[in-house]
Design a protein around this nucleic acid. Structure first.
Lengths: 235, 235
DNA sequence: CGCCTAATTGGCAGTAACTGCCAGATTGGC
DNA sequence: GCCAATCTGGCAGTTACTGCCAATTAGGCG
């Protein structure tokens, strides 16, 4: 049980000076790597949108990016990583934003803050839409994404539990349910957003979804919380 | 867009008499096929639980089941299908149960009925637990399952919409949100159930989850509905 | 400045899940 | 009992991905 999932993709090296935190790495090697990374990433995204994800073999990406297949796999452990890229960042920002919420904030409020923080990650509406579209229209990608999301949910469990009136160790399904519901609403919002070609704001849709799910109408004005499941309600 | 997903696995043949609906097929061929199917399925499940899903190559299953690899792939289009098997049945039962609900039943009530119907599908607690465990502990399987579930959700959309006060054609995220929330709660319930080694009833856990998500406490006694989002509330 | 070490790269072979094709075995209907 | 439809197995090929090894290259140091 608990098979240690191997860390995929290139992470080694960069022991010494490496990243100066300013994004301008000192050594030639690091600069070269960064360049190659960008080149691969751009080639991949271009080909994916041009011909579709499943229809684009790794070999082609490697060829057009000017690296060997073997090297490409050293940079990105899997084909999915070529699109996901900063998905790990997603998880980090999410948990960070939730942790930063004041202690009085209930689970719903904190989670909403996390969701909002993640939305702010996208560079532009256009790129987000393109990525989302690819994600929603490709079964294999969708599957991978959902899987990764599930892991985020597990990570969030303790964070959320302490904002609910739950005994920490207990096998209480409610924290999981709340988290999963938040993601469910985010999902519904994102899908609708894509269907509308990116019109409107995802967070508005999210609020609408949450309002439909929980009893409270018009949660938009006082977003994120409108009922029980806050700390100190029964203890 | 909308690449027609090829129907995988063996579906051909059986043009003529084939299935007499009683489960006792007439021709030798059909009997042989049924036998082979069972043999493969049992071998696969045994090996999967013994050595794990990812650690069990198709070649071994084929060998021990006494068929060629090629034939195995004709019976089951993918490795996943060896475990999933009647997952399609899942979707059928779900939609059927929801359709059978009276028109007055709201979305939540109807969906709960569907979930309950699906739970009744499992042969035994033990087998269900074993399958669930395998599913929850294997990343690739989890991903596939989530993907399939997403498709069910899309199928359910129209069914649920007509039980809500939504304009049919509108791009309203709320129906999606409700469906996704139901699955989210089912997920949380199933996970907790597995963690508890199958103790308790999944539907009880489901009710608890839904109660935690929606405002209403103690939804267990009057399950499935406790607030708005029923038909004829504003339309 | 040149050398040594360590990081990096590319190629090659191998695995695992599939898929198409073809030839041979089997079955079912007449 | 024969012919056609069906089924099966084997083989080759594709794609994602991994391990291994040899050749290159950058970095540090005397």
């Amino acid at each position: 049980m608990s098979v240690a999932l191997a860390v995929r993709g290139y992470r080694g090296g960069m022991k010494q000076e490496a990243k100066t935190a300013t994004g301008a790495p000192s050594t030639l090697r690091d600069r070269t790597r960064q360049l190659a990374t960008r080149e691969i990433l751009e080639t991949a995204l271009r080909l994916f949108t041009e011909q579709g994800y499943d229809e684009t073999p790794i070999a082609q990406i490697a060829r057009e990016a000017g690296v060997s297949q073997r090297t490409l796999f050293r940079y990105f452990g899997t084909k999915e990583d070529l699109l996901a890229g900063n998905e790990d960042r997603f998880g980090q920002v999410l948990t960070a934003a939730i942790r930063e919420q004041p202690a009085e904030a209930g689970a719903w409020v904190a989670l909403r803050a996390g969701v909002a923080a993640v939305q702010a990650l996208h560079d532009s509406r256009e790129q987000a839409l393109e990525r989302f579209r690819l994600l929603h229209n490709t079964a294999s990608l969708r599957a991978g994404w959902l899987e990764k999301r599930l892991r985020f949910q597990e990570d969030l469990l303790p964070l959320v539990k302490e904002r609910m009136d739950t005994a920490v160790g207990k096998t209480d399904p409610r924290a999981r349910a709340v988290i999963a519901t938040v993601f469910a609403c985010l999902d519904a919002a994102a899908m609708t957003w894509v269907e509308n070609d990116g019109k409107g704001d995802i967070m508005d849709l999210y609020d609408e979804c949450l309002a439909a799910v929980r009893g409270c109408p018009a949660a938009t004005s006082k977003p994120g919380n409108c009922g029980p499941t806050t700390p100190s309600s029964s203890s």
